[in-house]
């Protein structure tokens, strides 16, 4: 599997480490149901069969966090972008 890093270009997947589902929002610790929200945030994932968006770190490369669009049924990768909006903006 080769992952297209927005900074380095296509690189071997072994240079990256996988964190998991992208787009999780850290809950507000002062919310009345904060305990349950944190339970979901830490433990519950979509685990989708099909196209997903997930966080990878280019650990042995430019060390950027990137969001990769990948199909979990076929391993096909169709896109990637910087995870941080600031980095995304600076890169343009």
């Amino acid at each position: 599997m080769r992952i297209p890093c927005p900074f380095c270009g296509p690189r071997d997947s072994q240079e990256f480490s996988f964190l998991g589902q992208a787009g999780l929002k850290r809950p507000d610790p002062n919310a009345p149901d904060a305990q349950m929200q944190f339970h979901d945030y830490v433990h519950i994932r979509d685990n989708k069969a099909g196209v997903t968006q997930e966080l990878w770190l280019h650990a042995n490369g430019c060390r950027s966090w990137i969001v990769v669009t990948r199909n979990t049924l076929t391993h096909e990768i169709t896109g990637s972008e910087f995870a941080s909006p600031q980095v995304k903006e600076a890169a343009q």
Partner: peptide, 13 residues
Amino acid sequence: DYYTSYAARGNLP
């Protein structure tokens, strides 16, 4: 293999 998958086949690393 360190990423989520339903493919029932692995990769070379």
